[in-house]
């Protein structure tokens, strides 16, 4: 093991988060390395120093009373206009949480895209955000995109396959303009995001899920495709196969 790796693993060792093999490897390295042993001693000293309970802040009485009163109030109010208000607030809060998560975590590449895709999907489900051009006619949606994007997303009629075309929407995933083609199966909305992949290399379909939504993505004919829905994974795969055919 090189010191650079050891100096990270030492912390997992101190925290008791390594498996048996990991523990052994760290111990073996520490036996022969003075520098890392010093790092270990410091990490251990700091760890035990921070177990001082006085470092923790205790909730003041005022907060405790306020929170308890909120809980009691929530029991009394229930639905009615307050219910709608709180629903609106939770949608706003959810959007906020998702936005913050997307903005601050800055994970690389695909993970970022997956988060953006889910966020855009959630946003689109809010009132009046689903489509810019609501139509089940593929020959209306496709030219509408052509006037707005520098690439031409395929817009297929999948009625026979059991997916109803609902319309199209311009969207942004991060800084990238993307076409969103919207389909529906039963009450489930499917957003199909399409944008230039930046390379002609085709990639196989990959199935994932994020925050309860299913995602399938692949690359084909120089375009990146991401389908997202609360539809079950099996039917969403069926949808993806129909699109890519």
């Amino acid at each position: 093991m090189v010191c650079k790796d050891a100096q990270e693993l030492i912390h997992g060792y101190v925290d008791g988060e390594l498996d048996r093999l990991g523990n052994l490897e760290v111990e073996r390295h520490l036996e022969g390395c003075d520098l890392c042993s010093e790092v270990y001693r410091r990490a251990l000293a700091l760890h035990s120093r921070m177990q001082d309970p006085a470092l923790k802040f205790k909730a003041p009485e005022g907060v405790r009373r306020g929170v308890e009163s909120s809980v009691r109030k929530s029991e009394r109010t229930g639905t009615g206009w307050w219910g709608w208000l709180s629903f609106a607030a939770s949608v706003a809060a959810l959007a906020g949480v998702i936005w913050i998560a997307a903005a601050i975590l800055r994970p690389p590449g695909q993970e970022l895209i997956a988060q953006e895709v889910v966020s855009s999907h959630v946003r689109s489900l809010m009132a009046d955000h689903l489509t810019d051009i609501p139509t089940s006619d593929q020959h209306t949606v496709k030219p509408w995109f052509n006037g707005r994007l520098d690439f031409s997303p395929p817009v297929k009629d999948l009625t026979v396959e059991g997916f109803t075309l609902v319309g199209g929407r311009m969207d942004y995933l991060g800084q990238t303009p993307a076409a969103a083609v919207i389909y529906r199966r039963r009450q489930h909305v499917i957003n199909l995001f399409v944008w230039p992949a930046g390379s002609e290399r085709a990639t196989a379909m990959k199935v994932e899920s994020r925050r309860g939504y299913n995602l399938i993505h692949w690359t084909q004919s120089g375009l990146a495709f991401w389908a997202v829905s609360d539809l079950n994974s099996g039917e969403l795969q069926e949808f993806a196969r129909s699109v890519s055919r």
Binding site: K56, F57, K58, A59, P60, V63, R64, V67, E68, V71, S74, E75, T77, G78, T79, G83, S86, S90
Partner: peptide, 25 residues
């Protein structure tokens, strides 16, 4: 939302006791 008696009681058991941890963070 936790509105009915049962879910409020659940909230009081599962979430309320972590007030100090919440405040500390």
């Amino acid at each position: 939302m936790a509105t009915d008696r049962g879910s409020v009681a659940h909230f009081e058991r599962a979430i309320l006791p972590h007030l100090d941890a919440a405040y500390n963070l």
